[in-house]
Amino acid sequence: MGVISSKLGNLGVVTTTLDTAINWGRNGAMWPLLFGLACCAIEYMGTQASNYDLSRFGMELNRASPRQADLLIVSGRLTRKMAPVVRQLYDQMADPKWVISMGDCASCGGVYNNYALVQGVDEVIPVDVYVAGCPPRPEQLLHGIITLHEKIKGDSIRHWAAPQEAIRV
């Protein structure tokens, strides 16, 4: 044993399942899409900023291109004019991909029950975690992200083909 083991310590052998290893990798560095719609995007920016520091969860890197992103946080109200755009962004993301519907408007239309708004983004794209609040506090969003992590931990290669039910936070 030479230099390497003296630097790393003697780790020995770690045994794990393939599922756990893959999910660990996916949880640890989930890159969100740099995308904001309305008020919730401001709280999302607050979550990114110094006080709440989203990079604790390996998410400091916002990708502006959907091709490089794993997580779409729909932050804010989705109008009928915007809906095709969001669907296109979702379709451009590479698998595996997840969606958090942030805020009341994105989850169910919120206070705007009217002609202009899509009553929940789940009419357009499949959602993994719903976060309530108008707008949700950064802590609530963090809770939603952790819930998504939990969900991914339960994921297995065998389930990849079959879509799973959403979680409401």
Partner: peptide, 25 residues
Amino acid sequence: GFLHTGIEKTIESKTYEKGVTLTDR
């Protein structure tokens, strides 16, 4: 218009006091 939410129209269906909530957004 990608964020046109119809706030003006929605306020027309609320009383004056309740309209405040929508103006926030």
